[in-house]
Design a protein around this nucleic acid. Sequence first.
DNA 1: TTCTGATGTGTTTACGTAAACACATTGATG
DNA 2: CATCAATGTGTTTACGTAAACACATCAGAA
Lengths: 339, 339
Amino acid sequence: MARRKAGTEADNQPTMHDVARRAGVSQMTVSRVMRGAGYISKDVRKEVVKAAREIGYVHNRLAGGNASYDNPLVGVVVPTMQNRVFTEVLTGINETLDESGLRPVFGVSEYSLDAEEALVFDILSWRPRGLILPGLEHTKALRQIIARTGVRVAEIMDTDGDPISSCFGFSHRAAGRDMAQHLFDCGYRRIGYAASQGGLDLRATKRFEAFADRIRSAGARLVGALTSDGPSSMLAGRQMTAELLQRAERPDAIYYANDDLAAGGLMHCLAEGLSVPGDVALAGFNGLGFLSALPMRITTTETPRYEIGAAAAKEILGSTSPAGVTKVFEISVSVGETT
Amino acid sequence: MARRKAGTEADNQPTMHDVARRAGVSQMTVSRVMRGAGYISKDVRKEVVKAAREIGYVHNRLAGGNASYDNPLVGVVVPTMQNRVFTEVLTGINETLDESGLRPVFGVSEYSLDAEEALVFDILSWRPRGLILPGLEHTKALRQIIARTGVRVAEIMDTDGDPISSCFGFSHRAAGRDMAQHLFDCGYRRIGYAASQGGLDLRATKRFEAFADRIRSAGARLVGALTSDGPSSMLAGRQMTAELLQRAERPDAIYYANDDLAAGGLMHCLAEGLSVPGDVALAGFNGLGFLSALPMRITTTETPRYEIGAAAAKEILGSTSPAGVTKVFEISVSVGETT
DNA sequence: TTCTGATGTGTTTACGTAAACACATTGATG
DNA sequence: CATCAATGTGTTTACGTAAACACATCAGAA
């Protein structure tokens, strides 16, 4: 039987040797069975599996894992868990990794690049097979350590910038510009804007900058831009909408940093008896599924969250493409209609 | 310099020995600095940190990790990522673990106990410090392996059942019963019910059973119970509500398995011009924050998602309490009012 | 028939860290 | 002033797995 630090009571976990002894084979054979690698005869495999089950052996990846560097962990950093967008990305990542027996180790950066750096240093200590990071902006130290360790990295959600190696996303500048154009084309001229996260969301900022540029160059006016602190929520959207609509120069359309805020805006309108888009048009971002359940539709930009997560995960587990893959996903403005 | 499997090109990651050589100390001293354990003088610490930074060394937990069994990984299984409830639980878990330098490795079971079993076997191969599992129902094999390995386990969300060791949650039967009583006390007598996940959500089922019992024993009638497949969503809630309200015996109150479904019901009512709770009362479950942004309030049961996650995480990292902790959190029916 | 490559199993050793133990040095305590 | 505990650092060794290599056996090809 395997022993462990003297005195650690009944903490003697079985090892491959124990399984091997019981099955009458060598430890190496057990290792091959556990990993499903190499040639193993049906009979031996059955014996080994049976022996392992009988003594309650669980494969220990920490052990040899440091001698062989093929570690089925993938580090994943997301900016927040409060936004459905990232849970959908995570779902795409998780399902794709699952198929290949990889497992995500994750951290939440709360939109802080310094926190992201600390997270990545920590996660790298697990020698992950790859890293999935949000956005293209990172600290210098983070870029350095990634270059030094040579870990495979997939950046996601954004393509406006300089990727470390591969990235999967779309252009937020284009998204902002297109929405501005769309609102202008629909005849709106006094535009409001509402965001959250206190401006830490760099991709939302990119959208807004491109949006504002186009609004102005087209000849419309940005009549108010609010940013709330903290995570985005319907409530924050509702409150900012109320504030925007009380202004002297009242907007005829409002662009929100995301659908949650926009839906909150819609709730304000419902509560106040305002018609959408008659009294004020609302535009969100992401195209989350719950929009289709609302009593009125709002305009939004459809983004492929699940697909981005899945593509990034595939990149990590792929043996192909050493570096330099940039996949730009299609996004499309979907025009809301009142039901 | 450290070498690695011959021929693996520039894949020679530095080791503690390299750092030690550069800093003029022993490998063990580097180990102590990296872990922040043992006694280290300020000067030596500074030298070591500097040397590590210079050569780009990242601590490798896989290596010695198998000799010492104090592994800062915690396995976390959630039934779904589609429901805000679990992302809030995850947030509580993550933030609490973060403070102690632990990291979650997670898996999604999709409400399947067999999938949960497979996930746990996989996660156990990382020799996690502990395991956080949803609910009290698990496969026999899972219970066995947990007993065999002696891994610390915290079950969460539910207290109606027989915990493996410690559990953190509340009684779903009580929640269902209380809501039934509340609706009865308010005078509702024809009650509808709507759920999702095709009945796989065992905790929702417990709520419903206790709810239905009380409804009947109190003398009201359950006039319809619908269950949609797939994850819960506002859209599913809206559709089921439409269906329930078309029935011959039209419900005067509807209980939903969660707030998303209930909010969908509210959207149906808004779209149809029905007054809530005048024409039909709606009751959800969880008390999610977005309810406060809706133009009308619905009744719900407040559950402490974040707190449950945080408590479970604390239990895992606590050296106290070898086993047998059951913490039942308060839940409360919060009555909706029309704004 | 002999050779060859696929199949199946064992032996030896490396992996990089951390525990265990040993041993200075220092400052405070009695 | 001797003793002791706290502080600081080094040496040796264990951890459990998987790579590398070795060596059978066997079927089909040459």
